[in-house]
Amino acid sequence: MTPSLLIDVQGLTKTFGGVTALDKVDFSVAPGRIAGLIGPNGAGKSTFFNVLTGVLPGNGGEIRFDGKRLNGLQPHARVRLGMVRTFQKIHPFHGMTVLESVMVGCHTRGGAGMLSAMLRLPAVKAEERRFREAAEAALAFVGLGRQAQAPADALPLGHQRLLQIACGLVTDPRVMLLDEPASGLDANETARLADLLIAIRAQGKTLVLVEHDMSLVMKICDQITVLSFGRRLANGSPDEVRRNPKVIEAYLGSGEHRA
């Protein structure tokens, strides 16, 4: 049986000492959709990503990915299952070229270890060639084909965001979790990012993005979840969420309700 939901999170809770960052959050995405996760600063969006991807352990609730329980799995093991993420803050791999950085993303696609690297048998060479081709294809896809040999840390921010996406894409994910992919981009770059994300969805991949740029979220997302103070405030299509009074209140303040 194929579950109809790719990601199915039930009652996810995360506390830091006495602070409840996530309070029984439910979240689900069907395959091939773009889901947006929005909310005011401090709503718990990044914490949600961190618990979902295994960077932080959760305190309660259940995460299912394609029907499998993920709780307790290390981040790198989740990549193997087809869940990859990007970070809001860019972390270029110093000392590596753009192409090499993307080839790091091929890690789970092969198995050559330390000793086989030293022996460099034909099978290892063939694997390297596959990695290189996959990385070049991913770079061409995001529009960084010409920057392949540049040092990764020399790219401007807009290109860094694309590099992150290329790195994620070569892991051959089923879902990509993008943490503020448009932050720091100008209007042109954001428009191109939107096209890119739609093209990724067209390949059958699922996307979840945390994003502050409302016009981007409203434009490309099939569904939106709103978090506020660690709780799920609303969930639905962009139109439903836009009209939801609780969402309007959370974003615009509660002036009209003041006594």
């Binding site: 790198h76 972390h91 791999f93 110093h94 950085s101 789970t108 030293m118 694997e127 892991t171």
Partner: peptide, 27 residues
């Protein structure tokens, strides 16, 4: 050979930024 291999790139990536390397599947 080590540095320019799947293992070596993983090593350099985790040396540069551990969480970013792990997020791409590096153990």
């Amino acid at each position: 050979r080590i540095v320019d291999s799947r293992f070596g790139r993983a090593l350099r990536a985790l040396g540069a930024h551990e969480a970013a390397a792990a997020s791409l599947g590096v153990d």
